[in-house]
């Protein structure tokens, strides 16, 4: 695999991890508390820090990807037509929002509940940002990317990375329901990804589509990575189940959850990295131009 793709792999996964954390945090943790009018515990603030850290890693790697970073500010000048410009703008807005949210949470720990709208906004920006990111790849000149599989893949990556990470950080606190639902997400996304794979592959292999070259590249040049990804998915599912069944109703006594949740999260992260690397191998022009 070409090393030049690593910055993009890390950039995109980091941003998606960050947005995934925000979305899951917002929907699965804050939202139930909000509804049941519980006060927001300040111990969640460091989750924001992690999301922020991931976003910053993403920003740094997006620079590393550039051949001539000195001109980087110019990349904001074409949001009119360029999805890349929009993405960079989006990343900046998202990071700024996230940073603002985080800072506010830290400086006004008591404001908790009243800052929910900021978390909502950041998460929503994240969701939009992922859409923008996928639009970058949905171009006729890269037919293997130019399909609904791309946004689907990005969203699933975000959700599963966010969910599994939050599951890990829910150990010993959080509700039984949220732990269970995060575990279910951790299991079901790899299951969906596995289920989609044959559909995706048969689409890739269709002779009308770049002569089936995408599939050929997957199966001839990257067979090991291809199998590795399958194994990692299966592992993630297995660990997910393990985690699911270790969840006790007394959520403060869930020490046993740690090992499976960590393993699930690690295998999911690894699977997404391999997945993303394989995604970039599909950088094929029509017919090889």
């Amino acid at each position: 695999m070409k090393s030049s793709e690593w910055p993009l792999v890390i950039f995109s996964l980091a941003i998606q991890l960050s947005a995934g954390i925000m979305v899951i945090y917002d929907l699965f943790i804050l939202f139930p508390m909000y509804r049941s009018r519980v006060a927001f515990p300040s111990k969640y603030h460091w989750i924001l820090l992690i999301a922020l850290g991931a976003a910053l890693v993403g920003v740094i790697f997006s620079f590393l990807h550039l051949g001539n970073p000195t001109n980087a500010p110019r990349s904001l000048s074409n949001i009119g037509t360029s999805w890349l410009s929009r993405e960079i703008t989006g990343v900046l807005i998202y990071s700024a929002l996230l940073m603002g949210t985080t800072i506010l949470h830290f400086v006004m720990p008591s404001a908790g509940r009243s800052l929910k709208w900021l978390v909502d906004l950041t998460a929503l920006t994240g969701v939009i940002l992922i859409f923008i990111m996928s639009k970058i790849y949905m171009i006729p000149a890269r037919p293997a990317w130019n399909s609904v599989f791309t946004p689907l893949g990005f969203y699933m990556a975000a959700i599963v990375m966010g969910a599994s990470l939050l599951l890990l950080f829910q150990i010993n606190h959080g509700s039984w329901a949220s732990q269970k639902s995060l575990a279910i997400l951790t299991i079901s996304i790899p299951v969906i990804q596995l289920a989609i794979l044959p559909i995706y592959m048969s689409w890739l292999g269709h002779p009308d589509f770049a002569g089936g070259k995408g599939l050929a590249i997957l199966l001839h040049n990257h067979l090991i990575a291809f199998y590795l990804r399958l194994v990692l998915y299966l592992l993630a599912i297995a660990f997910g189940f393990w985690a699911f069944f270790t969840i006790r109703s007394d959520t403060t006594q869930n020490r046993l959850l740690f090992a499976p949740a960590l393993l699930a999260w690690a295998s999911i992260l690894a699977a997404q990295i391999v997945d993303r690397l394989l995604f970039y191998t599909q950088n094929i022009s029509p017919e090889g131009f």
Binding site: H65, L66, G67, N68, P69, N71, A72, R74, S75, L76, S77, N78, T81, S82, W83, L84, S85, I88, I136, I139
Partner: peptide, 28 residues
Amino acid sequence: KACPTKAMHAELDGMILIDPNKCIGCRY
């Protein structure tokens, strides 16, 4: 359309050129 910096641009005579002073090498 894709270029984020407008380094890639159309001249009035329709030729598509890259302004090396604007390009960030994003390869998009």
